[in-house]
């Protein structure tokens, strides 16, 4: 199995387009996943009976195979980018929801009581006290969800999308390994770069965590 380097230099434009489209699908999924799981996590954190139900539901969704999720969405949204993003979003939910609930749980009661005693309103306490303190745990979830989504985008190649995953189908159909190797390497690189970027974001957002050290 040899790499055809000239194929790579001939296709840099295509590779850039696919990489951008790949990243776009993964990041949209994480963004929608956050938009859905942040409010749901607040509900699960405050209303105990709903907690088991919501976490259990996201666990069940996770057991459905990714290709099956995409396929089951076909009657709803067809062979489109929307299907890819909805499918990936469903997968991010299990990680994001669990981590956000755990993050909110980890905020010390005394801190919340102090905020209350100072006359801070509940919504303001949530936004300026609880979420920032829960951020390290939430960000750990965001990192896992992002890496997972980046790897899963390629499954959507079966429904005609899939970003870099298209290189796998292409290489398979033409019995030509180069695009497949390039696709795997670029996916891994994207995951590493995105993860490092998220670590940097977290570092910038939580200055108080490093004052102690």
């Amino acid at each position: 199995m040899t790499i055809d380097w000239s194929w790579i230099s001939d296709h840099t434009d295509d590779l850039t387009t696919l990489t951008v489209s790949h990243l776009q699908a993964a990041l949209s999924a994480v963004l929608f996943g956050l938009l859905i799981s942040l409010p749901l996590a607040v509900v699960a954190h405050r209303v105990r009976p709903l907690r088991g139900f919501l976490l259990g539901l996201s666990n069940v969704l996770f057991t459905i195979p990714s290709i099956a999720v995409f396929v089951l969405l076909l009657p709803v949204s067809g062979l489109t980018r929307t299907t890819t993003v909805i499918g990936l979003t469903i997968y991010t939910l299990v990680v994001l929801l669990r981590n956000t609930v755990e993050g909110l749980d980890s905020v010390p009661t005394k801190t919340k009581e102090a905020a209350k005693a100072m006359g801070t309103r509940p919504l303001r306490t949530l936004l300026t006290v609880e979420f920032p303190l829960a951020l390290p745990v939430i960000m750990a979830g965001v990192r896992i969800a992002t890496v997972m989504s980046i790897s899963l985008v390629s499954v959507a190649t079966y429904i005609g999308d899939g970003g870099l995953g298209q290189l796998f189908t292409d290489g398979f159909q033409r019995n030509f390994p180069t695009p497949v190797i390039v696709g795997v390497v670029l996916t891994l690189l994207l995951a590493v770069v995105a993860d490092a970027a998220l670590v940097a974001v977290q570092y910038a957002l939580t200055p108080w965590t490093r004052r102690r050290a």
């Binding site: 199995m1 896992i144 890496v147 997972m148 980046i150 790897s151 899963l152 390629s154 499954v155 190649t157 870099l164 995953g165 290189l167 796998f168 189908t169 290489g171 398979f172 019995n175 030509f176 390994p177 497949v180 190797i181 696709g183 795997v184 996916t187 891994l188 995951a191 590493v192 993860d195």
Partner: peptide, 17 residues
């Protein structure tokens, strides 16, 4: 995290080829 990042579809095709 490496396991999470590795695209399974790509791996299957690669080993197949």
């Amino acid at each position: 995290s490496f396991g999470r990042a590795l695209p399974t579809v790509g791996l299957v095709v690669l080993v197949f080829l």
